[in-house]
Write a protein that binds this DNA or RNA. Sequence first.
RNA 1: GCGCCUGUAGCUCAGUUAGGAUAGAGCAGCAGCCUCCUAAAUCCUUUUUGGAGUUAGCUGAAGGUCGGGGGUUCGAAUCCUCUCAGGCGCGCCA
Length: 558
Amino acid sequence: MEFVKNHIIEILGKLGVSKVDLEIPPSLDMGDYAFACFPLAKELKKAPNSIAEEFSKKISSDDIIERIECKGAYLNFYINRDYFFNNFSLDINKSQKQKILVEYPSPNTNKSLHVGHVRNMLLGNSLSRILKAAGNQVIKTNLNNDRGIAICKAMVTYKLFGDGKTPTSEGMKPDKFAENFYVLFGEKLKEDPNLDNLAQDMLLKWEQGDKETIELWELFLGWVFKGYEETYKNYNFSTDITYSESKIYDKGKDIVLEALDKNIEGFDKEDDGAVFVDLENKKLGKKFLLRGDGTTLYMTQDIYLAKLKEEKFNPDKLVFIVGSEQKYHFDVLFELLHRLGFGGVEKNYHFAYGYVYNKDGKKFSSRTGNTFGADELLEMVTEKSVQVLKEKHPELNDDEIEKRSRIIGYGALVFGFLKVNPLTDINFDIDSALSFEGETGPYIQYAYARIKSIFRKVGIEKIEPKSFSNISDKEYNIAKKISLFSDIVNDASLNFRPSSIARYLIELVQMFGSFYNDHKIIGEEKDIFEKRMYLIGLVAETIKQGLNLLDIEVVEEM
RNA sequence: GCGCCUGUAGCUCAGUUAGGAUAGAGCAGCAGCCUCCUAAAUCCUUUUUGGAGUUAGCUGAAGGUCGGGGGUUCGAAUCCUCUCAGGCGCGCCA
C-alpha cells in the first residue's frame, strides 16, 4: 500500500507539513494510517490537539481516503475499502538483487549432529529461502571442520579399543559409531592420562601425512559423512559447495606476509618471526596470524577462505551462521578482511544464534553423550504425530499416517526453533517441542487444513468476488494483514530474521481463528459467501507461502 | 579485569535496529463456547428438555515496579548514563 502512504504524504504536504512519519494505529477503529501532530507544535506555536483538529477540517475525502478523523493529537486516515481490495496483491516484492553466500552448518566431524546443529540448519534453511524470496541470489556453502585434535582423540580410542569393529558389524548409524569412540576417549582418559599425548602424536602424524594415520582418518570421515548424509536429507539440508578445513588449514600464509610487506595497518611481527595484527584501536586486542615457525593459525585459514570465495563468486554479501559464542572471532575476522581489502562488516555478516540448553538451563554435552541427537529428535516428533493422527483418524492407512506425520512432526520441530529470536538462548524442552497447541507449527497447518476442507466441501478452487463492500472489520483486518506479507518477507530478508515470518503467521492464524469462529461461510447468500471464500483462500495461500519460507510443508487434511 | 549478549505476566516469548495512542501472544490454571463448515467426536442411559466426556479451534476473566536508579523528550520497554543479576568470549587452540 505504498501508493496510499504517498497519497497521504502529498495531502499533508499541501498543508505545509514537510516531514511526514506515518504510523499504523494500534486498532482498526483508529483508522488505517495515522499522523501524530506533536512535532508540529513548536513550529506552529499551537497545541498538538488543535493542530490535528484544524487539519482534519481542511482535508476532504477522496477515492482513496474515505474519511479523516482527529483523536487527540492524532490524525486518523481511513482507506476506502473497495479501493484497497482493487489494489490488493499477494506477490512478494523481489527488489533485493544481491548475490549472497550463506555458510552453514560447518560441523566438527568427530561426532553426529545434535540439537545445536539442528537450530543451525533450520535457521540456515529458512534464511536461504527468505533471501531468495526477496529476490536475492543465494549460494549455500559449508565448511567441514574435518581435522584437529578432536577427531584424533576418536581415532586413538578406535585404534586401541576398536577391535576392528565397523558400523556394519555393529549395526549402527556410522556417525554415531564414530562418535562413540570420541565419547569413549573422555572415559578412558580418566584411567590413563597418557591418552592425551597419544592424540597429540596422532595429530602430528596426520600433519606429516603418515600413511596409516591418513587411512584411519579417511575411514573415520567416511563413516561420519555417511551418517550426515542421512541427517542432512531428513532436515532438508543441501549445499552448493563444500569446503574442507583439511584442505585449507595451512593456507593463507602468503596473504599475511604480503600484508606485512605492504605495511597494512596493525600488521607487525615478533622477534621470533611470529606475525600478529594489533587491533587495539578497535578494542579487539592483538591477534596472531602466523607462528614463529611460519605455520598458520585458524584465523589465517579463514582469511584464505574469504579470498577463495571472493575469487570464485564475487559475492555482494557473505553470511556465516555460527553460534554467538564466536562473535569475537568474527569481529576480528571482518576487521582483518576490511584491512586486507576484502570488505568488512558492510559485506560480511555473522548470523549469531544463542545456545541450546537442556530443560533446566544446563549445557548439553556431546563429549559425555548427554544430548539430543538430530536424528533422534526428528524421530520423537514424528512418532508423536503418528500417535495423535492414529487416535484422530483410525481409518487412515499406515502410509498416509506416515506421510502426514513427517510433515506435521517436522513442522512442530522447525516452528519451535524458528519462532524465537535467533540470539535468544533456548532451554530445550522436549515436551514443548512435541506440543501441537498454541504457537506451534501444527497450529498453523491446522488452519490451512480447515480452509482446504471448506474448499473441498463446496467443490470450488477459486473465487473472485465482484465487490468488497460491507465486509466486517474482522475480515478487513485479515485482508490488511495479508497485504503486509510482502513487506514482512522483505524485512525478514534485510534483517536476517526468520522469526518475524513465524510471528507473522501466528498473528495471521489467530485472526483467522477468531473469524472462523463467528463467521459462517457455507450457506450464506452468494455475495457474502464469495467474499469469504475469496478471503480464506488468500489466508490459505499466505500460510502456505509463509510456511514454505520456514521450510515447512502444509497438509490438505489433518 | 575488559568486551559482547540477555533481563518484559507463575513459565516460554513478541515488541528495542527506525521512540507515539490502554505493553501483546502462547503455556499452565479458572469460567464458558466449539468440534477442519453448520452440526455437534465418542460412550452410557434411553418412556430423555438425561448423563459422562474428548479437544491441534474460539471467547472471557485473571495475571505487569517492561531488572533497578537517573537523564533526554510533548511522549521511553525502545535512546543516553550509572547500576544489579545471569550467560558467553578474551590462546603463537580449533
